[in-house]
Simulated assay, not measured.
Amino acid sequence: MPIITLTTDFGTKDHFVGAVKGSIYSELKEVRIVDISHEITPFSVTETAYILKNAYKNFPPGTIHIVGVDSEISVENRPIAIEMDEQFFICGDNGILSMITNEINPDKIVEITIQEPEDDKLTILGMFIKVACHIARGGTLEVIGKRIETIKKIYEIQPQVNTEKNQLVGSIIYIDNFGNAISNISKAAFHNIGKGRSFEIIARNYKFVKIYDKYNDIVDFDIPLEKRQDDGKKLAIFNCANYLEISIYRSNLKTVGGASNLLGLDYRDNITIRFI
């Protein structure tokens, strides 16, 4: 049974997600629909890129991913379908796939040329649904579009190297549910550029000289539990996606707070690593 995933900025209050799923089932009854996220910050291509990159690789070959973020058709945002890493992606050509295509070359890219149904009430996603169901039935990309060679990239996803100052300058690309501030600096980039040197990480007015392997590495377990005061401590860590993250230990945005509000870190804020 084919799998179709949905990643949107629709939220769950309105009818849109349910309507999309209903349209898919009307086209193709034998299908499994998986929600990756519907809580993307509206129109945030960078946030979508991070979430999609870290979710898709857990799905089996042949999975079809519909991405409904900043997907309205315009002369600057054409609808595309891509076959890549044994999976399919249907989205607007707005850079959403940059984090994947920076590491993996697409096998096939097409600009979707089929017409959007005139009576469709789901705007651009009506076209995406038609394409996804076509692929799920075993159809080829050439039938629904014309081959193209390149797609747009968003360059803010890549950190910048300043060799004169021995710096790696990145930025925050995502704030997660715990308030953790996740940067675009990968573990691989850190090691390739740092080459084992000492370092300091600067995030606004805060400095970090150590990157932890696990969140609870900040805890001294030799101290009796009733005397520990670790909750609320700030730390730097490479998260499960291997990106540098500024965190608050046991953060909770409703109680203790998270790095985003306690440290004043927000989307696009700079994270600088100085190598010594």
Rank of each mutant, 00 (worst) to 15 (best):
H191Q: 12
N177I: 03
A188W: 05
R197L: 06
K187T: 04
N184G: 07
E156V: 14
Y215S: 09
G196A: 02
I201S: 03
Q167E: 15
F221K: 10
V209G: 14
K227A: 07
N216A: 15
R197A: 09
Y206W: 11
G179V: 06
G194S: 11
I175G: 02
F178L: 05
A188P: 00
V161F: 12
Q229S: 14
I202R: 11
I157T: 01
I172S: 03
R204A: 11
E226V: 04
I172F: 01
S198L: 11
D220I: 01
Q158V: 10
T163E: 13
R197K: 14
K207V: 11
K195D: 10
I157H: 07
F190N: 05
Y215P: 01
Q158L: 13
V169C: 08
I193T: 02
D220H: 00
N162P: 04
A181N: 07
Q160G: 01
L168S: 03
E156G: 03
A188V: 13
K207L: 11
F208W: 09
K195N: 05
R204K: 15
V169R: 05
S171K: 02
N177S: 07
Q158S: 15
A203I: 14
D222I: 12
D176A: 01
L225V: 15
V219H: 01
Y174F: 06
I218H: 09
D217E: 07
K187Q: 15
I182R: 10
G170F: 09
Y155T: 14
Y212D: 06
I172D: 02
Q158Y: 12
T163S: 12
P224I: 06
I173P: 00
K195R: 14
P224N: 08
E226H: 05
T163V: 05
N192Q: 13
S171T: 00
N166I: 10
E226Y: 04
I157W: 10
I157C: 04
T163N: 04
V161R: 09
K227Y: 09
F190Q: 04
P159M: 03
E156F: 10
F199L: 03
G179M: 06
K227M: 06
N162K: 04
I202S: 14
F178M: 03
R204T: 12
A181E: 07
K195S: 05
K207E: 12
R228E: 05
D222E: 15
F221M: 13
G170L: 09
N192R: 11
T163I: 08
Q158C: 09
V161G: 01
Y174W: 00
I218Y: 12
I201P: 13
N184D: 08
I172C: 01
L168G: 00
R197S: 12
